[in-house]
Design a binder for these strands. Structure first.
Lengths: 191, 191
DNA sequence: ATATATGGAATGAATGTTCATTCAGTTAGT
DNA sequence: ACTAACTGAATGAACATTCATTCCATATAT
């Protein structure tokens, strides 16, 4: 009853506070308070703040991969598959601003850089769908003959920027605008 | 010895340390040490750490605008003007990785969000060149009929991502690749 | 059925550390 | 000698983490 309960509350509180105020606007005491838990209790579930932060990242990332693969059909044409992934990603971030903000916080921190470097060198992870799509797209001359990293940048760069602008309230996206934006990203990568 | 000397050293040290280790990996004492200056001396030039950080941002931003305008010819066609700006921006970041890293740190912090919000509402600043280019491009049907914010995202998103990847060593960009990348961004915004 | 013992979970005050900022004293320029 | 610039040890606030204590559910004894 209470074991997963507290852990969940801690994770939720940490996500909210870190997403909103950054790692340094979220002291453990504040996280504990928001989770309605004693400060020491956090340490029953997470060895220290770093572990909490990293674990939280893992959970957020996992959900993204799940969302991307939902309804993804390998047999559809490149363009459709790209639009599916791009739209799913953008929508997911729009619907889960806390997740998005958390990822941004994480990426721009010592943790994030190390993580990124690690993921890059292992050349694996949940980006596999994207990697496969892009590699095949290039070899079948549907996409520009550019290094994978650059294709990623052309596809994700705008989406993340737009998601950020939406979340910060600089723009209000409707279905049509989302579609147009993802289409524009496709224009960037397609041959 | 002279007055501007120390100030400059402080600014340089702060830029280096903050770009490399983030705001919280750059205590004032460390900045002072790197600048070969007493800790208290910093406070002769900057009221407090916030002021130092904000002023540093101002200086970094200023240089960018200077670089963008260098050789910018209003009378050239849209595509050429876009390529000029995009290339100049990307090259500037590649050549000044500390500036780039600093901007990223700044943007992902309470300072940055407030700044961004302020700039957005005032609708002014050094992005004017870009704004004008995009507004004219849209009205002359050369660019996609999308909100300015989205066109910005399509143009900058990939460039910043690529710059980051280059600086982190995930890719090595040569002249040809830079040109291709900026061209691809143009494909994203052009009609 | 009631009382008592046991141990893991939870707590939050106390601890030690890290920092931004200050200021009393020192140095160097005139 | 006077002044402005500079210094870095001292200060206090904020924080992550610890740990002696409390709480509570369950087991055991009467």
């Amino acid at each position: 009853m209470s074991k997963p309960d507290k852990r969940e509350e801690i994770v939720r509180a940490a996500l909210e506070l870190i997403a909103e105020h950054g790692f340094h606007g979220a002291p453990m005491a504040m996280i504990a308070e928001r989770a309605e838990v004693g400060a020491g209790t956090i340490y029953r579930y997470f060895e220290n703040k770093d572990v909490l932060i990293t674990e939280l990242y893992r959970e957020v990332e996992e959900k993204i991969y799940a969302v991307l693969l939902e309804g993804y059909a390998t047999e559809r044409p490149f363009r459709e598959r790209f639009l599916h992934l791009g739209t799913a990603l953008l929508r997911h971030f729009m619907e889960n601003p806390l997740h998005f903000r958390y990822l941004e916080q994480f990426h721009n921190s010592p943790y994030g850089v190390a993580f990124r470097r690690d993921k890059f060198s292992r050349k694996k992870g949940g980006c596999d769908v994207f990697r496969e799509l892009f590699e095949d797209g290039v070899s079948q001359q549907v996409m520009k003959a550019l290094p994978l990293v650059i294709l990623f940048a052309l596809a994700f760069g705008p989406l993340l920027t737009v998601a950020r602008d939406h979340i910060l309230g600089f723009i209000s996206l409707d279905d049509a605008l989302i579609a147009q934006t993802v289409e524009a990203c496709w224009d960037g990568v397609r041959r």
